[in-house]
Write a protein that binds this DNA or RNA. Structure first.
Lengths: 133, 133
DNA sequence: TTTATTGCGTTATGCTATAACGTATGGCAT
DNA sequence: ATGCCATACGTTATAGCATAACGCAATAAA
């Protein structure tokens, strides 16, 4: 919630739009919401999104081609190099972010056994949340 | 779970193209390779891909928007409801499919604790394989 | 002052995926 | 056989996601 001191105007607009959203938003969803603020082109949004992902303030959901604000950006340092998992309800759109050290450890074991150097790990569960089943 | 029916011509063409490929292919990659066989439209490929995924003969890689043939389609029954994980080398494109029961169990625990009903789980590690690092 | 970096805005383009229409075929109950 | 249904097919058009390439502006560093 505390504004990142280094954010540009476009980055702030995009971050606040994602913070205000209930679930995830596509880049074009964001663009549509920000036309009133003067944004006109997809690149203005994509460039901001790239930076916000880099800062650890938002996540990209690969299976949705969409973006969501980080559940706990203050904790960024703590799990900056950790694995973030998501449970995504296909009915209501609710996205729950979680971290599981056991899973992370198991993945590290596999990577070590294959000398695979991980850059980014995606874990996404699509399904129905408790409210929707 | 019953055995999948015989493949149609389009389905066979798409499956054989993926089997012959070294790594993953996008739908449009496949279309380009099959123009010589008479395929002309994306939908012809996408419809075949949908069925092949349904039959468990291929996988969709969410972080690449691409498809790859299943490493062990004979084993379909054994892990039809299991979780498949992928390690994807961003340098050479090699994709390694693996299964880890401990990770699967841990995800099941999380899902049970939240009453979340999973439909499809994506685990993809992007990085550099041993040959490329 | 000069140079390098970063962000911005714009136009154009490319890649990924599906909607909607009509046609054809094969199974099967009547 | 007739009618019905389910599935696959081919085509055109469109929707949705993402980046290339250009030039300009502001700022920081040498």
């Amino acid at each position: 919630m505390t504004a990142h001191p280094d954010l540009t105007r476009n980055q702030s607009l995009v971050l606040h739009t994602l913070n205000a959203a209930n679930g995830s938003l596509s880049a074009y969803d964001i663009l549509d919401k920000l036309r009133a603020e003067g944004l006109r082109a997809p690149l203005q949004v994509y460039r901001a999104l790239d930076k916000l992902v880099e800062f650890g303030l938002i996540h990209r959901l690969e299976s949705l081609n969409a973006f969501i604000s980080c559940a706990d950006p203050q904790d960024h340092e703590a799990h900056a190099h950790g694995v973030t998992a998501f449970a995504i309800c296909d009915s209501c759109g609710q996205v729950t972010e979680f971290h599981d050290h056991a899973i992370e450890h198991r993945l590290q074991q596999w990577q070590a056994s294959r000398s695979f150097k991980p850059e980014k790990t995606t874990i996404e569960i699509r399904g129905a949340c408790s409210n929707c089943s």
